[in-house]
């Protein structure tokens, strides 16, 4: 890949979780492949959208990137530094350059801390002196559209949109180069979503930030992302610049996903029943294409051979036997 200009390169990331069953004695009865052989690169200043339905592994991917979850395999290179082998101390240092933003504005903050303490927490942990912390908080709050005086308040005194602004201020505290945004606007009202999305875009311009924008909302991702990766049951099935992905989706799952989005022009209705089935473990295990059970174009080959993730056009890749 275009490794020279990439800020972060993930290669073959893997994470599995055991499933325990049994009524009295817990035994391991299976494995969930949360993230399975996921590779991508994000250039500096770029926004990569990561879309997929619940349980597809998009949030886990974001956390693997920051090594908030230890991967079972694969590598993450951030600005040339291999993240997966760093020791604790070096990891904490490197991790200051990547920050995480959360979906749920109600659980993202300790309800007993004041906004000022919340925003300065990353700096406190990084060992910044009190004075510098206070100065930075005073600088950050106006930057995200809050006032300096609001530093003395508690999170529950703010609306959802304002809390998300607090989250952005906290994420910016250490002047990171990259922010992993995990569904940052999904819990917000539509009229507030736009404010937060605009703020994220302004900040990206101003500080040259790189975003991994995780969302299930295909509309918002289409607006904010430069390139988009589509995940299904732990694997990336398609990755392309957004105009390509939304304009000429190649993977049947991407097509199903896009056709399922309700249209807001009345009269311009969806084709009914384009979407079928629900994401679930493939009956044949993980040897074949995971989408095969729901795919309208399934072939015998799809069930026992994992489709390779290969280029189908310029900067556009997909994993489907139809495209082989």
């Amino acid at each position: 890949m275009i490794a020279e200009e990439a800020l972060v390169v993930a290669t073959s990331l893997r994470k599995t979780y055991p499933i325990y069953g049994g009524t009295f004695i817990k035994r391991r009865t299976g494995t969930v492949h949360a993230v399975d052989d996921v590779s991508f690169a994000i250039r500096r200043g770029e926004t990569l959208g990561l879309v997929g339905e619940s349980g597809c592994g998009k949030s886990t991917t974001g956390r693997l990137l920051m090594r908030l979850i230890e991967p079972d395999g694969g590598s993450v290179r951030f600005d040339g530094v291999e993240m997966t082998t760093l020791d604790r101390r070096r990891l904490n240092e490197e991790r200051r350059r990547i920050q995480l933003m959360f979906q749920d504005p109600s659980s993202a903050f300790n309800p007993r801390m004041r906004v000022g303490q919340i925003v300065s927490e990353p700096m406190r942990l990084a060992g910044a002196p009190d004075r510098a912390q206070r100065a930075r908080v005073a600088e950050l709050l106006p930057l995200v559209g809050l006032t300096e005086e609001q530093a003395e308040r508690f999170p529950h005194q703010f609306s959802g949109g304002q809390r998300q602004r607090i989250g952005i201020a906290r994420a910016l505290a250490l002047r990171p180069e990259m922010i992993v945004c995990d569904e940052p606007v999904s819990a917000l009202d539509v009229s507030i979503q736009a404010q937060v999305v605009n703020l994220l875009q302004d900040l990206q311009q101003q500080f040259g930030l790189t975003y991994l924008f995780i969302s299930h909302d295909l509309r918002v991702v289409r607006h904010i992302a430069d390139r988009v990766a589509v995940m299904y049951l732990g694997r990336i099935v398609e990755l392309a610049p957004k105009a390509e992905l939304y304009g000429s989706p190649q993977h049947p799952y991407t097509r199903m996903l896009l056709s399922a989005v309700p249209k807001t022009k009345p009269g311009a209705t969806r084709t009914p029943t384009a979407a079928a089935g629900e994401a679930g473990p493939a009956p044949g295990g993980r040897q074949g294409c995971l989408f095969a059970p729901r795919c309208p174009h399934v072939m015998p080959r799809c069930r026992d051979e994992i489709p390779a993730f290969r280029p189908v056009a310029d900067r556009h890749s997909a994993a489907c036997h139809l495209l082989g």
């Binding site: 920051m66 908030l68 959360f102 659980s107 300790n110 927490e121 990353p122 942990l125 990084a126």
Partner: peptide, 24 residues
């Protein structure tokens, strides 16, 4: 999430327990 956030800033287990869990 705030526990995860603190961990992502390099907060140790001890820090998280004493700062975020015990007070609540």
């Amino acid at each position: 999430s705030f526990v995860e956030a603190a961990a992502s800033y390099g907060g140790s287990d001890r820090y998280i327990v004493f700062r975020h869990i015990l007070p609540q």
